[in-house]
Structure formats: structure tokens, C-alpha cells
Simulated scan of single mutants.
Amino acid sequence: MNKMIYGLFFGDSITYGEYDGVFGGWVDILKRYALQKYNEGNTNELILFNLGIGGETTEGLVNRIPHEMKARNSADGNIIFIGYGANDLAKKDGNQLVNPEQFKTNIEIAVQNAKQYSKDIYLVSILPLSENIDSKVSPTGKVRTNEDVLIYNQILKTIATENSLNYIDFHSVFLQDKEILLSKDGVHPNEKGYGMMAEIAIPIIEKYL
């Protein structure tokens, strides 16, 4: 029996695929891959929704995940990806947009919402920052540090362990070659970086094809 499974990718501009004018980001690469596999005769149809919004923090996620999940709920099953933190940890005027405690609470609320629709939930790590922008004020007045990236990623790992969720560790893969995998702004991947993310994620979605 053919199944129609939905994959929902919640996140910020890195989920959306900003700064990738070639492939449209890692989620769009996965969308094309899933469609190709279906056209080649795979049993299940996996429909992927890119629900990334540039600049969004977990505050936005908490507000919209109940509505988004209800609107896109497949009777055959859902896979949910949650990728946040790069905006939450940014400091503006000395204050983080979403502090670590609130970040933890927000992710936990989102996970509880997601669990109503799926057992297949993946938390996505925050990427490392380029040394060029680490601790420096950006043109938008925000400051991000690699130290904070580690703190917020640890929160994600802990939540994944406590809730028996999957954790996708893009951070470790990027770390050594981050200067060639990140775009000029030092936060978003470039085409090569997004391609690497898709390569890591393809075996995950293949399980549902």
C-alpha cells in the first residue's frame, strides 16, 4: 500500500535556504531528491514542506507550530525537523533575543506539539560561525559568538536525549572546514555548505521512501 508521508521543516533562514542562489538550500535539495525517487517508482510518496522563516526565533516557532502541524498532517505519518538557535542566541544591545532558559522551554513546548502528530522528530544543530564574525557586531547590530553556539547546541542535545529524539549534528561536520562552507556573512552556509547538509540528511529521509 502506497503511503503519503509529510516532512515538515521548521526553522529560520538556514532552513529556508538563504544565500544559496544555486540549489535553494538543503531542504529544497531534499525536496527534489524525494520527488525524483517517487518518480523512479518508490513505494512511498514523501512530500517535504520548507517552513523556514528568515529571522525567526523559537518565540515564533511556539506561536505557529500548532497551526502549521494541524494544516499539514498526513494520516500516513509525519516527519518533523526543528532547526533553531542562530537568531535566539544573537545579542542586541547586550541582551540575547531568547536567553538559554527560554530557548529550552520553547523547544520543549514545540516538541510536545510535534509529538501529537509524529514519533519521528529531529532536532537540528546550530552551525558554527566564521571567525570573521565571532563576537563582532553585525550590520544589523547583532552579536553572535561560537561560545553561545555550543551552549545552545548542548540544550538541543539534552532535549533530544531526554525525549528520545534524533539530533542532526551539522555543527561537528562544519567545524573543521567552516571557512569554506559558510557564505560571506559568516552565518549562513554557501552552496557547498548546503550541499553537505543535504548529503547528511538524505540517508535520514531515505528511511521513509
Rank of each mutant, 00 (worst) to 15 (best):
V187I: 15
I109N: 05
A198P: 00
T158G: 03
I79Y: 10
S183W: 15
Y117M: 01
S125P: 11
L51A: 06
G83C: 11
N190W: 00
Y167L: 04
L46A: 02
P139S: 07
F9N: 06
G77L: 08
D12E: 14
I47H: 09
E56Y: 13
Y194G: 07
I205R: 01
I109F: 10
S74E: 12
Y38H: 14
D20V: 07
S138D: 14
S172C: 08
E108N: 09
G141Q: 12
N153I: 10
G141V: 00
Q96W: 10
P139A: 10
N106S: 07
I47W: 03
P100T: 06
K37E: 15
S13R: 06
M1Q: 06
T57N: 00
P203W: 06
A34C: 15
G54Y: 09
N78W: 10
L8S: 07
H67M: 04
I121D: 13
T43Y: 08
R72P: 05
Y194M: 10
F81A: 05
E179G: 01
G52M: 03
N190Y: 00
G52V: 13
E45V: 09
R64P: 00
G193S: 02
E206R: 04
I155A: 08
I204H: 11
L175D: 12
I205A: 02
A110N: 05
K142F: 15
T145S: 15
S183I: 08
D120F: 06
I155P: 04
I5M: 02
N166F: 11
A86Q: 12
F81C: 05
V62R: 12
Y19E: 05
G54W: 13
E162V: 08
K31V: 11
N87R: 03
S74H: 05
K115N: 10
V143W: 14
K119P: 02
R32M: 05
M197D: 00
L181T: 09
N106H: 15
A71L: 10
N78R: 05
F170V: 05
Q36A: 13
E191S: 15
Q102Y: 01
G55T: 05
T43F: 07
G186H: 05
G85D: 07
L181H: 08
V124C: 07
V62H: 10
A86E: 14
K136P: 01
